[in-house]
C-alpha cells in the first residue's frame, strides 16, 4: 500500500548478439531522428538572432545566425504588453491547470470504478460532447453574457475546465491500478477519497505529470478563447500579445519607408523571436515534469 522508491536492482543477464544489434540500431536511429527533429527549432533560434535583410535573401539550411543581432528580441520584449501578457498567462496556467487536474482526477476516478451503475451512460454523455456542439455563438452568449465572464481571465479557464481526451487517458490509467490494492485499502476502512488521493494518484505520477503537461501547455499556447472573450489589451495573454506583435510587424513590412529597408524586413525575424519567447519557458519547466514519466528511477509500489 505504500509507495517507496527502490534503488534499481540490476539483474544481469547476458545479452544475445541480436539484442546488442538491436540496441545499437536503436541508438543510431534515435540519433538520426534527433538530428532531424531538432533542426526546426535550431532554425528558428538562429533566424531569430539574424539580420532580417540577410535572412530574406537566405535559402536552404541555416547553420548559424546571419550577422548576429538581438534586434528582433528587442522589438518583441520592448512591447509594453509583454509583461502583462506573461502575467496573465501565468495566472491562467497555474490556476487553470490546478482546476483541470483536480476535476479530471475526480472524474477519471469516478468513471474507472467498476461497480458504478451510471458509469457507461456517463461516459456516453461526456464523449458525445466531443462530437456535437452548439458552435461559437451560443457558447459565446452563454459564457460572455449569461455568465458574465466576458472580459475576465475566468472565461479562459472555466469553459475548458475538463478536456475529454485527457479525462479518458487518466481513466485508462486508473483502470490499470491493481484491484488488490483498492480492496486492501477498503478492508482498512478507507473511503473513495482516501483511495483516490492516497493510493491512485501517488501510483499514477507519470499520468498526473502528463496531465499537468498537457493542460499546462494548452493553457500556455491558448489564444482563441482570448480572441473571443477579452476586450482589454491589459488582459491579453502572452500568445495574443505575440500575435499582435507579429501581425503589426508584418504589415510594417509593407511600409514604403525606404530609408529603413532593414527595419522593414524585421517582421521576418520577429516571427521567429516570438516563437522562442513563447516556447522557452516551457522548455525550462519541462525537465521537472519529464522525470516522472521517463522511467529511470524506479518509483513503484510495494504490495501490502
Amino acid at each position: 500500500m505504500v509507495a517507496t522508491a527502490l534503488r534499481p536492482r540490476r539483474i544481469r543477464h547476458k545479452e544475445s548478439s541480436g539484442e546488442r544489434l538491436f540496441g545499437f540500431g536503436t541508438v543510431l536511429f534515435l540519433v538520426a531522428l534527433m538530428g532531424v527533429t531538432i533542426y526546426p527549432l535550431i532554425y528558428v533560434l538562429f533566424a531569430s538572432l539574424s539580420n532580417a535583410a540577410e535572412l530574406t535573401q537566405h535559402r536552404g539550411l541555416l547553420f548559424a545566425p546571419l550577422s548576429f543581432t538581438f534586434e528582433a528580441y528587442r522589438r518583441v520584449l520592448e512591447n509594453p504588453l509583454i509583461l502583462t501578457g506573461y502575467r496573465n498567462t501565468l495566472f491562467i496556467v497555474i490556476v487553470g491547470t490546478a482546476l483541470n487536474v483536480f476535476l479530471t482526477a475526480l472524474g477519471a476516478y469516478a468513471l474507472s470504478r467498476r461497480n458504478v451503475l451510471l458509469r457507461n451512460p456517463a461516459m456516453f454523455f461526456i464523449v458525445f460532447t466531443m462530437f456535437f456542439s452548439g458552435g461559437l455563438i451560443p457558447t459565446y452568449l452563454l459564457v460572455g453574457q449569461t455568465l458574465h465572464l466576458q472580459n475576465t481571465l475566468w472565461a479562459l479557464i472555466i469553459p475548458g475546465a475538463v478536456q475529454t481526451l485527457n479525462l479518458i487517458i487518466m481513466r485508462t490509467a486508473f483502470q490499470g491500478v491493481p484491484v488488490a490494492l483498492e480492496e486492501a485499502a477498503r478492508i482498512d476502512g478507507a473511503n473513495d477519497w482516501t483511495i483516490l488521493f492516497r493510493i491512485f494518484l501517488p501510483l499514477s505520477w507519470p499520468v498526473v505529470a502528463v496531465m499537468i503537461l498537457f493542460y499546462g501547455v494548452a493553457h500556455w499556447n491558448s489564444f482563441f478563447s482570448a480572441l473571443v472573450y477579452i476586450r482589454e489589451r491589459d488582459l491579453y495573454p502572452l500568445q495574443l500579445v505575440l500575435r499582435e506583435i507579429l501581425i503589426s510587424s508584418n504589415v510594417q513590412n509593407m511600409a514604403t519607408d525606404v530609408s529603413s529597408g532593414d527595419v522593414l524586413a524585421i517582421g521576418e525575424t520577429i516571427k521567429y523571436a516570438t516563437i522562442i519567447v513563447a516556447t522557452l519557458p516551457i522548455l525550462l519547466v519541462y525537465p521537472y515534469l519529464q522525470r516522472y514519466f521517463v522511467k529511470g528511477v524506479t518509483i513503484g509500489a510495494i504490495k501490502e
Binding site: 535583410a53 530574406t56 513590412n253 509593407m254 511600409a255 514604403t256 519607408d257 525606404v258 530609408s259 529603413s260 529597408g261 532593414d262 522593414l264 524586413a265
Partner: peptide, 12 residues
C-alpha cells in the same frame, strides 16, 4: 509600398 519600396530598401 510592399514591393518597390521594400526591395529598394533591402537592396540599397
Amino acid at each position: 509600398g510592399n514591393g518597390i519600396g521594400k526591395y529598394a530598401g533591402l537592396m540599397a
